[in-house]
Design a protein around this nucleic acid. Sequence first.
DNA 1: ATGCGACAAACCGTATACTTCTGGGAAGCA
DNA 2: TGCTTCCCAGAAGTATACGGTTTGTCGCAT
Lengths: 213, 213
Amino acid sequence: MPRPSHRTRIYEDLLARIQRGEIGRDDRLVDTAIAAECGVSRMPVREALMQLVAEGYLVGTSRGFMLPDLAPATVLEVFVLRRLLEPYAAATAAQAMAAATADALAAAVAEGEAALLHDDLTGFYRASQRFRDRWLAAVPNRELHGTIHRYMIQVQAVRRATMRDPPTQKVILDGQKALAAAFAARDAVAAGEAMLRFVLAGEAAYRALAAGE
Amino acid sequence: MPRPSHRTRIYEDLLARIQRGEIGRDDRLVDTAIAAECGVSRMPVREALMQLVAEGYLVGTSRGFMLPDLAPATVLEVFVLRRLLEPYAAATAAQAMAAATADALAAAVAEGEAALLHDDLTGFYRASQRFRDRWLAAVPNRELHGTIHRYMIQVQAVRRATMRDPPTQKVILDGQKALAAAFAARDAVAAGEAMLRFVLAGEAAYRALAAGE
DNA sequence: ATGCGACAAACCGTATACTTCTGGGAAGCA
DNA sequence: TGCTTCCCAGAAGTATACGGTTTGTCGCAT
């Protein structure tokens, strides 16, 4: 590993902050401020910010960079993509899955269940994130992997929004258990079906939430 | 229209050059050279180049920016994505399609056919590009549209590679005609089926070519 | 003749300084 | 009091400069 450039460091730092939800809905990220905070010049910060814009994590306004405002319509459009891609991705991942990965998936489910028992929403969120990261890493088709990874932001937003609801928590856990079982058995058909059901359940939960507001 | 920034201008210029195939397989795009050519400083050029990298049009090496080297394995991975996404996209586009767009599609097919009669491969290429651009623009789901658009480069590479073969030319034209008919009739089912056949035919042509080398 | 090492050029990453543009707020007018 | 106008601060955009790293080549020694 040669040396991580400032741009890379700052990019990863900002991405982590965004993914942890530390950036508020109306916080404005300004290059000069971040540069001063990190003790570097504006340029690496600027380039990191613009990379985040290119990947859809931020939008650039004429007055600082902000979070994109994830209109419900956009989230529903992403659900279409998920329905089309993720069942196939899960099926291929199940076929290619190593035993260690399957175990790690089961562990992530158990962690999420334990977190729920302690009303630890953050822990549950992290566990479900880890679950997703792990099965996604097992998808052999790298292009498919990258495409699914790209709308991670929307998926996270949906999780964050729907996760507070106890019935939804149960739906998520049950879905993850079914998936973990299919992955452990390397059953591609069952994995594809379970994933389709999982995505549809997530969409239903999101629609109920969006309608309720 | 406020005013296109240098970065935007250069980005669009470079993208157009890439899409027209003016960048050779082993040309190295260097910021200083492009900056001198355009009469601006390195910074806007750099940012344009990095945006192209983020979108997958280029890869940044330690010695200039180059075209990604599209391994056949990658192209085949993209075909999986196309099989999963484009039939659905075509079906929804057919339902939403305006009469003017359907006419434009038919016109693009006619142009391509005319170009073939004059052995004008470039014209045929441009016509099939226009055909794709137009039906894709009619996809209502913007997320789906963007996702499909992102692997445009691979699609172009396949076209460029397979297009010289006369039987393949006929397959492409026939596929486009079937699609244009389905679009004109706003027949979502037929459009989806035609698109699936079109993608599969393209994949078969590419596989034949890759095996033949 | 070939392999290894040093030198030079090229290019990227970063820093600093300057310019342009946008948006908000204050002041003036109806 | 509400609306319009003008001004200014802040932020993006751009220019120029410098250091570091990689790469390619030339020369020397084996």
